[in-house]
């Protein structure tokens, strides 16, 4: 019916090859076209996707270009029609008691903070992307020893830490020195020695640490040091600390 073979075993193998990606354009298009109307084929494809999914871990993560979200955001505009007809009460799985008001008021605070930070940081263009970010609880702007903002760190409500490079007006972004790695450290208030939070990607301006080895709390000092390729061999910063900043509540600045 769809130009696909009728033999179930053949169709099963075809589903596997579709997911693997080895079908040529014509055959892949046939499978894709058959999927909406063929529940068995859909199930076979979904099963192959699950089976082979762990292989995606072999692709090294890489931060996309910093302007990519803005492009996506622009591409899905305008928000009105879908949002307007969307059910006002999201499905039960969502735990957000009073979404609208909470979101808006925290967004307001966030904007006030962001404007202050923008003024303080004078001409740093990288901040322009920040007001789009969802409201964080705590954040830090990591600066160089020349007080130049270089990284924005924010604590996600689940306790994760997100780090994003900031771009200066001159278009500069923090660079990893050749043959070295930058390592992230957290020093909670009262602690004597910093704890490693992980290595930064060699290139790429973003990373998220889902479960930081030390809980990011208010007033924690966040630092980035330059280390050998495998990271600090001693568990403490061995190279120069090139960026640092302190976590403060968004809105307090």
């Amino acid at each position: 019916m769809s130009g696909l073979p009728d033999d179930p075993a053949e169709r099963e193998a075809l589903a596997g090859e579709y997911v693997l990606g080895t079908l040529d354009a014509r055959m892949a298009a046939r499978v894709a076209a058959a999927l909406p109307g063929d529940a068995a084929l859909r199930a076979a494809v979904a099963a192959w996707e699950q089976r082979l999914a762990p292989l995606t871990a072999l692709a090294p993560p890489e931060a996309p270009p910093p302007d990519l979200w803005d492009r996506i955001d622009a591409a899905i505009a305008p928000p009105a029609p879908r949002a307007a007809i969307a059910s006002p009460a999201p499905r039960a799985a969502i735990a957000s008691p009073a979404p609208r008001r909470g979101w808006l008021s925290s967004l307001g605070l966030w904007r006030i903070w962001a404007v202050g930070a923008t003024l303080a940081a004078a001409a740093f263009a990288g901040l322009a992307v920040l007001p789009r970010a969802p409201a964080p609880r705590y954040m830090a702007v990591l600066v160089t020893d020349q007080s130049q903002p270089a990284w924005a760190a924010e604590v996600m409500p689940n306790g994760g830490l997100h780090l994003a490079a900031m771009t200066s007006v001159a278009g500069n972004r923090p660079q990893t020195p050749q043959g070295r790695r930058m390592q992230l450290w957290g020093l909670p208030p009262g602690a004597k020695t910093p704890t490693s939070l992980g290595l930064l990607p060699v290139q790429g301006g973003q990373m998220t640490i889902r479960a930081p080895s030390v809980r990011p709390v208010k007033d924690m000092l966040i630092m980035i040091s330059v280390e050998p390729p495998g990271g600090s061999p001693t568990g403490q910063p061995t190279g120069p600390v090139v960026f640092f900043g302190r976590l403060t509540a968004a809105g307090e600045s």
Binding site: S96, P134, P157
Partner: peptide
């Protein structure tokens, strides 16, 4: 909790 962050929500 603000609903915008999605920080504690599952991807689902």
């Amino acid at each position: 909790m603000p609903s915008g962050t999605g920080g504690t929500e599952t991807l689902d």
